[in-house]
């Protein structure tokens, strides 16, 4: 219908957006398959002339990468499970139960998302030192759940509201007790939402740097972001290895987003567009 500018301008602008925002990651992916000579040559190639997986091998042979990967996975998985459980139960309580003070609790969870995280870095570090759990996965999980669980109550809102109360009423009439209703009836129905906050928790923990950098100190306890960041500050960076590492670190978030991305985008847009 619109007569102006025509299809060239339209497609050019879309292409530009793709190049600017998706291009860099594609460039890293392509580069991770180039042999070092080609990677560092003064006249860069676009596609690898000699395809190689040497950087991926080096990642596991020369760097403690498998250990970081394992650590990140354990911490992120624990964070995801605890976030999903604690978040779902708290959300049920806040949205479905009636008791004095629940509005304050809801506000408390909501506000914990807003304050600057760097504010509690020092006291958390000191507290964990005094509890002697610094440099353990436990400290990291505790911090990561703190970052992701309170806000997941908010994410769950739309999911919980889409489940009709009539279902719980029917279960009650059928003689189920309240706990059974929560665990046997409600949680299975809300499973997609709970999975979404779990995935969100996993990805947040997987990517988190600030807390991990002070809570994971020795090399065998480092998570991926902390382990890779260490190599990034060295004077001569091994670019091939860094590139391959980036691809492998980015893999879970990209896959996770491919699976659950539409929930994020829905949640993202539902909250702010009225």
């Amino acid at each position: 219908m619109k007569k102006r500018s025509g299809s060239f301008g339209k497609h050019f602008s879309v292409l530009l957006v793709i190049i600017v925002f998706v291009g860099p990651m594609v460039w890293i992916l392509i580069n991770s398959f180039k042999p070092t000579v080609e990677l560092l040559s003064p006249s860069p190639t676009f596609f690898p002339r000699n395809f190689t997986l040497e950087h991926y091998w080096n990642l596991f042979r020369r760097v403690n990468f498998s250990r970081y990967y394992y650590n990140s996975f354990i911490v992120a998985l624990s964070t995801a499970v605890i976030t999903a459980l604690a978040g779902a139960l708290a959300a049920y309580s806040v949205y479905r139960c009636r008791y004095p003070g629940r509005k304050i609790l809801f506000r408390l969870f909501l506000s914990s998302y807003v304050f600057p995280k760097v504010l509690i870095l020092v006291p958390l570090y000191i507290m964990f030192s005094q509890l002697n759990i610094i440099d353990t996965p436990l400290a990291l999980v505790a911090a990561h759940v703190m970052l992701t669980a309170p806000f997941s109550v908010w994410i769950l809102r739309a999911f919980f509201e889409s489940i009709p109360i009539a279902i719980e009423e029917a279960a009650l009439v059928d003689g189920a007790n309240r706990l059974q209703i929560v665990f046997r009836v409600f949680i299975p129905l809300a499973a997609p939402g709970i999975a979404a906050i779990g995935i969100n928790g996993f990805l947040m923990s997987w990517s988190e740097y600030l807390f991990a950098s002070v809570l994971a100190i020795t090399d065998i306890n480092k998570t991926l972001p902390v382990g890779m960041a260490y190599f990034l500050q060295e004077y001569s960076i091994e670019w091939g290895v860094m590139m391959a590492g980036s691809v492998l670190i980015a893999l879970p978030p990209v896959v996770g987003f491919a699976i659950a991305g539409r929930y994020f985008i829905e949640g993202l847009t539902a909250g702010s567009v009225k």
Binding site: S207, Y209, P225, L232, A250
Partner: peptide, 14 residues
């Protein structure tokens, strides 16, 4: 939205 999905360390290396 990919740039937002990527971990910060990947953004930095990139």
């Amino acid at each position: 939205i990919l740039p937002w999905v990527l971990p910060t360390v990947v953004v930095a290396i990139m």
